[in-house]
Nucleic acid binder design. Structure first.
Lengths: 196, 196
DNA sequence: TAATACCAAACAAACGTTTGTTTTATTACA
DNA sequence: TGTAATAAAACAAACGTTTGTTTGGTATTA
C-alpha cells in the first residue's frame, strides 16, 4: 500500500538517529521505506524539509504523549514524575539510543539554523513540564533550577548511554531524579504551591 | 612557512566542532589551513585518519593539561576542583562552543566505530580525575557515582549551552559542582581518605 | 641534489535533485 | 456494479555538484 508522509517521517527517525543529519543520504531514508530516493521528492521538496517535518512531528509527539503526563491530574505529582521519566526513557532507548533533538540540534545549530526554533521549542516544552511538577514542592526559582538540572542530567546520561552502549546510565539517572524529588518534598513539607 | 601535522590538527578542531565530522569537507579543513584540499593528503592518508589524529591529540591534551590538575598536590582538593572546572570550561567554550569528544562520539559511535576506543578513553580519563578528587571526601562507591553525575551534568550543560547559544548553562553547573563538593565534604567531616 | 611541502588538475564515486514514464489507487459516471 | 477518467505514488534514469582521493608537476629548503 502507498506510504503517507507520516509513514516516511516515522521510518526516517531511526535512520537519522543512527547517522545524524549530514551523514544520512536520501537513499538511506528511501531504503528504510522500501522506496527509491527520487520517490521521496513526491512527499518532501528537499532533505531539509523532510528533517523539518520530522522535527515538527517529534516535538508534537513529545508534547502530546510525553510532556503532557506532567499535567495529568489523575495521578499524584510523584506518579507523574515517574511516568514522565519512564515514557521519555522509552523514547531515548528506542532504536539507536539517543535524543533526536539533542543530536540534530548539536549538529545543525550553527550551520543550518533553520531548525533551531523547533528544537528550542522542544526543550522549552520539556522544561515547562518539569517546572510544573517541581512547582508543587518548591518555589518557582528553585523549580526552574531543578528543571534545567534535570534536563541536563538526562541529556548527559543519554550521551553516555550512547557512547558506552549501556542504557544503565539513563535508567540510573532517572531513578536518582525521582529519589531527589521525594527528598526535596520532605524537606519542604510546609510548602504550599500557589494555584495558577 | 610550511605547516606541520600538529598545525593542521589544531586548525581543524574548530572546523569539525562547527559542522561535525560528516558535514565537514576536506576543503573546509584545507581552507582553514590556507591550503588546497589535495595538499592535506601529504600529511594524512584519509579523512578518517585525520579525525583519528585529532582525537588522539585532544585526548592527550586533556589528559596533560586539564585532567592532570586533579592530581596536582600543590593545591588543595577544592582548589583542584575549581581549576579543573575552569580549565575544562575554557575548552568547551573555545571557538564554536561544545565538547569535541561528545559531538564526534555521538555522530560516529554507530556508523564509524573505529573512533570509539579513543573517545571512551577520554571519558575514562575524565572520570578517573573526578574519582581522585571525590575519593578525598567520601568512599569509592560514592566517588564513582558523583563522578559519573558530574560528567553527565557538564555534558548536558554543554549541550544546552550550544543549542541556546548561552554559556551560562555551563558556568552555572560548574559553580554548583564546586558548592556541592563543599557540602559533601562538610557532611563527611570524619571521613579519612585511604592512601593508595 | 634529494626530500619536503604544496599546487593544480583530474578522478571516480556519492550526493541531492529533476525528469519522464509507469504503476497503483481513487473517483465519476454509465 | 462495472468501467473509464483522473490523480497520486513510485520507478528508472539522468542531472549537475560535491565529495574524498589520486596524480604529476613546481617551488622551497636542507
Amino acid at each position: 500500500m502507498a506510504l503517507t508522509k507520516i509513514d516516511i517521517i516515522k521510518k526516517s527517525i531511526p535512520v537519522f538517529k543512527e547517522k545524524g543529519f549530514g551523514a544520512t543520504a536520501m537513499a538511506d531514508i528511501a531504503s528504510a521505506c522500501g522506496l527509491l530516493k527520487g520517490s521521496l521528492y513526491h512527499h518532501f521538496s528537499s532533505k531539509d524539509e523532510l528533517m523539518k517535518e520530522v522535527l515538527i512531528y517529534l516535538k508534537q509527539y513529545f508534547a502530546e504523549k510525553v510532556f503532557s503526563i506532567a499535567y495529568n491530574k489523575e495521578w499524584s505529582v510523584e506518579k507523574r514524575l515517574v511516568r514522565l521519566a519512564r515514557k521519555s526513557e522509552e523514547q531515548f532507548l528506542d532504536g539507536p539510543g539517543g535524543c533526536f533533538m539533542a543530536m540534530i540540534g548539536t549538529e545543525t545549530v550553527i550551520s543550518t539554523p533553520k531548525f533551531n526554533d523547533i528544537i528550542m521549542g522542544f526543550f522549552a516544552d520539556w522544561k515547562l513540564a518539569f517546572v510544573h511538577l517541581y512547582s508543587q514542592i518548591c518555589n518557582e526559582n528553585l523549580a526552574s533550577e531543578y528543571s534545567d538540572k534535570a534536563i541536563m542530567l538526562i541529556e548527559g546520561a543519554v550521551l553516555m548511554m550512547r557512547i558506552h552502549n549501556n542504557p544503565y546510565y539513563l535508567t540510573h539517572v532517572q531513578e536518582n531524579l525521582v529519589e531527589d524529588f521525594e527528598l526535596i518534598k520532605k524537606k519542604n513539607k510546609e510548602f504550599i504551591p500557589t494555584n495558577k
